[in-house]
Amino acid sequence: MYDIAVIGTGPAGISAAITALVRGKSVAVVSNPASESGLYKAERIDNYPGMPGVTGAELSEALISHARSLGAEIFTGKVQTILPNDDSIFVGYGMEMIEARALIFAPGVVRTSSFPGERELLGRGVSYCATCDGMLYRGKEVCAICLAADAAEEAEYLSSIGCNVFTTDSKKIAIGGENRVEWIEIEGQRRSCDGVFVLRDSVAPDVLVPGLELENNHIRTGASGETNIPGIFAAGDCTGTPYQVAKAVGEGQLAAFAAVKYLDAQK
């Protein structure tokens, strides 16, 4: 059990981790590979104070090694499930999970929109996780919508366990059926299928945490990064524009202070 789980190894997540570590809290950070992030791919950043012209990759690596040097444990994988329990929060990523007393959500820009039919049929044929649910579709027709860096691998996994897979990277998608997935429409062409795996870089925050309040397609937070769910805080691009490193770093620190205060009040 960790004191704080942080989702994201960008400026907000790492800033939060550093502040929490300095305050004596144990911290686990879970994230997709940093090399897939928008920050990592930035050619140069000219407005982060003190580091003119730094490349995204340099800044990303410097952030992560700083947190690691202070004792952060960093785990790589796509976060699939977040489950608040009585006095702790479970975070499931890949096939693994960690447990923490508080959570700071800092995954970067999040998508909150979904395809027609996607949310309605979630669990009735729509899945976000090939490794979690693939086994339930052996011998069945499934569509893998490949919108993430590792999506092709996941689609390959589905084939390897015996699903009849067809893939698309189209975003003109509609999913339908009576109480369960029966068809998918890709670019207006309807095709029957039993399952649809929507493989994006990240699962929408309000799907990960049912009941999490959004505002203008971002996570709604108070002045210190608190969300509407006790023990869950958010920082950085996921809380709104401007999508800037300096803003993310500041919010990460505020969220960590708030999380530390929350933890100390629990005792």
Binding site: Q80, L83, N85, G94
Partner: peptide, 14 residues
């Protein structure tokens, strides 16, 4: 549930 399912392990104690 199934043994290979991460989220299933989370709800087992609940």
């Amino acid at each position: 549930w199934a043994a290979w399912c991460g989220p299933c392990q989370m709800i087992a104690p609940i």
